[in-house]
Amino acid sequence: MSTTDTSAPEGKTVTQKKEITPRQALIKRALKNRNLMVSGGILLLIVLIAIFAPLLAPHDPYKQNLLARMVRPAFMGGDSKHLLGTDALGRDMLSRLLYGARVSLGVGLLATLMSGIIGTTMGLLAGYFGGRIDQVVQFLINVRLALPAILVALACVSLFGGSITVVTITLGLLLWDRFAVVIRAATMQLRNMEYVAAAEVLGARMPRILRKDILPNVTSQLVVIASLEMASAIMLEAGLSFLGLGVQPPTPSWGLMISEGKEMLLFESWLITIPGICLFVLVFAINVFGDGIRDISSPEGRN
């Protein structure tokens, strides 16, 4: 019995609406969601740029030209040979930005994948089994949250040396907490659903239940957290590189470019503005994309 009569009435017959599966309904809602489409488009573009950077880049991103240092971008009256100008070592900014997308996306994707696997496994186990396992997982989450992420990441990078691999692994090992928290709560809720009990009574074993009855029902939450964590991994990589303890020069990383531009802040502020905008657009698109996924998977709206 529903609390109020505003809920949908008991239809006496199968709904006459056109037959669509939940997946088709989801795709339909996705196509209608403008934010999702626009942000998805931007993301796709950035991914394509990262993949085809060698073809798109007008110059070698590592090639220094001390004669053409800090050439202003074309729209600020600079040289049309360097559309977005050159940096303090005379390297072409546009080429470095295009290659920089590879670093941001690569670190973001791999770190998220890693933390996603760690956090989801922990969340599923804690939520499904409860009891001792849950207590241990909760304790681990508390410990992880207590550790200051940036400080630990900096320390690791300084101890193991700054390279894309170290940064990625460090972030992957640090950013699993939200996955674990959310998936644990969701699994706990699903664990008590009667269809899980029914599957158990019908002879389904634990791995099958996790695969068929639990995971498909947490995927939308997974995508949402993955988008959030990817955004924060990208930000953290940029932050570490900015502090000089992330990706090391001369690798083109947007964070590192901002750090290099910082020296010239007084005179040439565009040197930090342009890579900053790239970073902003990427993270913004990821966040809006995540919000969009949440909206279409819970049709009531963004509450």
């Binding site: 932050g239 900053g276 970073l279 966040n287």
Partner: peptide, 17 residues
């Protein structure tokens, strides 16, 4: 949404500028 996407070190530099 905008706030979540601005890297804080960059935001700091912009404020300085």
């Amino acid at each position: 949404v905008v706030g979540e996407a601005i890297p804080s070190f960059w935001f700091g530099l912009l404020l300085i500028v």
